[in-house]
């Protein structure tokens, strides 16, 4: 089922053009980015605000069209006009502000929005909307007004609206930034379920390092270029480099790093609570 669900960028350059100024000012945001996302992969995209990570994500669903270089999404060349809708159906995108991406006044109507645009038959819309809402656990809320839901619930509705299209890739641009801890947990649980049970390729942009630690792979962007690309363990073990880019590492990683600096014998790749508890208890319970 996951055939062709991958993203590919080759030497991608992208500039924003400010037309208000005379003459128009071009600002290059992406300076030749090359990236390959494999089918079924869960990639976290990190970088400080303004680093170009959202711009990159928007190149993958043909919202931004590359100035130079090539972008392929699920096998479609993103620079071709006729591929616009095939790409957007396959590569869904969820945004930061839950309020600003819900179009309709009833949950199920909103989830149906993309399918209505695609001209799907009403009976099929009904089936897919119900299925998508059940997947994200919002089926009981199908008749509710979106503005009465919590932030986490709104984001899950937004995800359902994307899922109804049956996408192969879901791009999430800081979906948890405006949520409280329980909302964040809800959304993360949903994302992981998409990856594991539905075989959806995930690209997650986030500022929360604990969320990034759950990914298969982390790509770090700084000033429009990819500076790191590896599994979470090897990314977070480079504590100094991460901090110099303006990013963070999980608390447990930081602790182990500080202890290692003091000569304590600890492995370099501790990024989860469990690993930390295990390593520290070994030290403390050593007879």
């Amino acid at each position: 089922m996951c055939m062709n669900s991958f993203l590919q960028a080759e030497n991608l350059k992208f500039s924003y053009i400010n037309n208000i100024e005379e003459p128009p000012v071009r600002t290059e945001v992406l300076h030749g980015v090359s990236l390959d996302v494999k089918k079924g992969e869960f990639v976290a995209l990190l970088g400080h605000n303004g680093s170009g990570k959202s711009t990159l994500a928007k190149c993958f669903n043909a919202i931004n069209i590359a100035d130079e270089g090539k972008v392929y999404a699920c096998g479609f060349d993103a620079s071709l006009e006729e591929n616009l809708f095939p790409i957007r159906q396959r590569v869904g995108m969820v945004f930061q502000n839950p309020d600003n991406q819900i179009v309709a006044t009833i949950v199920e109507e909103d989830v149906a929005f993309a399918l209505e645009n695609m001209g799907v038959e009403p009976a099929e819309i009904r089936r897919r909307v119900d299925e998508a809402l059940k997947t994200v656990g919002m089926y009981e809320y199908r008749g509710h007004a979106p503005h009465k839901l919590s932030g986490g619930q709104k984001q899950r509705v937004a995800i359902a609206g994307i899922l109804a299209m049956k996408p192969q890739v879901v791009l999430l641009d800081e979906p948890t930034a405006m949520l409280d801890p329980s909302g964040r947990a809800e959304v993360m649980k949903t994302i992981k379920m998409l990856k594991e049970e539905m075989c959806v390729t995930i690209v997650l942009i986030t500022h929360y390092m604990e969320e990034a630690a759950q990914a298969d792979r982390i790509v770090v962007i700084d000033n429009g270029s990819i500076v790191m690309d590896d599994v979470p363990k090897r990314i977070f073990s480079q504590v100094e480099k991460m901090k110099s880019i303006g990013l963070d590492v999980p608390q447990v990683t930081e602790l182990c790093y500080l202890l290692r600096q003091q000569g304590v014998d600890l492995p370099e790749d501790i990024i989860t609570e469990d690993e930390c508890v295990e390593a520290l208890s070994k030290l403390l319970l050593k007879k």
Partner: peptide, 18 residues
């Protein structure tokens, strides 16, 4: 932007849930 990402392109060829 969110509408564009969900393939909105005006009323042509649109179907309705209800």
């Amino acid at each position: 932007l969110a509408m564009e990402c969900r393939c909105y392109h005006g009323g042509e060829g649109r179907t309705r849930l209800k």
